[in-house]
Design a binder for these strands. Sequence first.
RNA 1: GCGCUCGUAGCUCAGCCGGAUAGAGCAACUGCCUUCUAAGCAGUCGGUCGCAGGUUCAAGUCCUGCCGAGCGCACCA
Length: 564
Amino acid sequence: MTPAELADAVALAVRDAVAANELPVEVGQVPLDIKVERPRSKEHGDYATSVAMIISKSAGKNPREVAEVLKARLEKVAGITAVDIAGPGFLNITLEAGAQGVLAENILSAGENYGHSQVLSHRIINLEFISANPTGPLHLGHARWAAVGDALGRVLSAAGAKVTREFYINDAGVQMDRFGASLQAAATGQDIPEDGYHGAYIPTLAAQVVQENPQIVNLEGSAQQTAFRDDGYRLQLKQQQEILEQFGTVFDVWFSETVLHASGDVDAAIETLRGQGHVFDKDGAVWLRTTEFGDDKDRVMVKGDGEKTYFAADAAYYLNKRARGFDQCMYMLGADHHGYVQRLKAIAACAGDDPKVNIEVLIGQLVKIVEDGKEMRLSKRAGNIITLEDLVEWVGVDAARYSLARSSADTPLTLDTKVLTARTNDNPVFTVQYAHARISSVLRNAVELEVIGEGEIASALQAAGPFDPALLNHEREGDLLGALAEFPRVVASAAELFEPHRVARYLEELAGTYHRFYDACRVLPHGDEEVTPLVLARLRLCAATRVVVANGLQLLGVSAPERM
RNA sequence: GCGCUCGUAGCUCAGCCGGAUAGAGCAACUGCCUUCUAAGCAGUCGGUCGCAGGUUCAAGUCCUGCCGAGCGCACCA
């Protein structure tokens, strides 16, 4: 019996009790979403629900009386061994061992689909993240989104959502000219302009441009600057794409802001919003009345000099996404851009949409990195920046992705280079990967001992003999089965709450639960011992655990090694 | 000044849209390898959940105020 099935059974018991007039609750008062949770303490059974306390008020009975009514019904449900009432009115439910054990078989047959669901099947989501300027390398802040955004995309897909991952290339505006001027200055031995880019990568990139296009030195003035801008842009973007590919973060769409302007989308967007009655002219500029929808001030779309603002492009981009059929536009922004949230929502509202439905903004706190106790500053305009490439070089893709994705995006994160470079078990990714490798080892040995045949593990187990789930009645086996049963709920809630880090935290717990099982329960026979049904049952449990660990790591974009 | 985000063990962080004695890893200390990977397991130590009120049968979780940290408040991108 899975948690979902148990929750359904509890819900049914409530509805039946109401229908039978055992609980004087109006039908409308019955909670639709009844929760069943795993208690921290084993004394509280396999699962517990607080539903009796929740409906006690509307039932006009005290919680324990309500619990009595539900207990009587739940005790008759197949697969439930015991129902106890505890504390103020908790229902503590104990399941039959066999009812839990069959899960191992179910997980094996579901394979890589175990954990997938359709809870978000109605959503068509545009997931935009990173969206860096193509004027420099991706840095640590981008790395966080590369890990979290990618994992979120995977989690949302697993929950049945139709997800398009998109990178908005901020390749328009004066910044690009400053970028070109900076490269030009670096290449021609002049001082980089005060308002230019001063990163250490600029001279390197400038040299690269010259190497690929030696003729550029013969150009002059603004023609040369434009050439540096365009060539530098191309090279820089390519470098960003390469490192992201190496990082395992893939995008479906690379969307150029310049194209948005050139296609006329920006002009069209202004007219569309004007048609909705939210655009006005003042002081020679064109404004959007965002204050009508909670913004602190109205925003300029077309400046007095006729230039369109970045904000105008944002509005056009939003409308473009909507026109492409996305009903939820997700933005992942750094904490230093949180001021944009209100105006983004205002755009949606001005367009006649519901910001609460159509816009979702996730704010990521900044990543700090310390070395020898002192913080290293991250600045694209100063030297000494820590890039995504550096991070991968130091700790590898797996450790980098995992350590960034295991924390909630809205907590400030401090990474210690000493810890990350040490390659010790300080990094929980090793514990999780180790569990996968350890299980793989057990399964390899099972083949070697000819307990099971070679080939695909699920069918090899199938061929080896029948499965008696009731044999998995050791306490540690029950713990492990309980943990495995949680996986679908973890993935679903990670998707619904946009919090992929829940998957990582779950995996850490699962790994610990497996290690404790492994310590207490010998799987393979010693020496001449016979292959008992218990051996086969435990092998199934091991194989099922490996499936879940692998599926979880897959959602995080982290590899699941068979040997370490 | 206005606004947003964050304050949980010595450190890094969880805490499942209010639930039972607040958790994990690391660090410190103590045990466990002739047996499937000891990158493991068992145990000890460690917290007035920033502070003060409020709502509730129940608050780390929700509301208000204060304190502290970071960041935003452009006809910049």
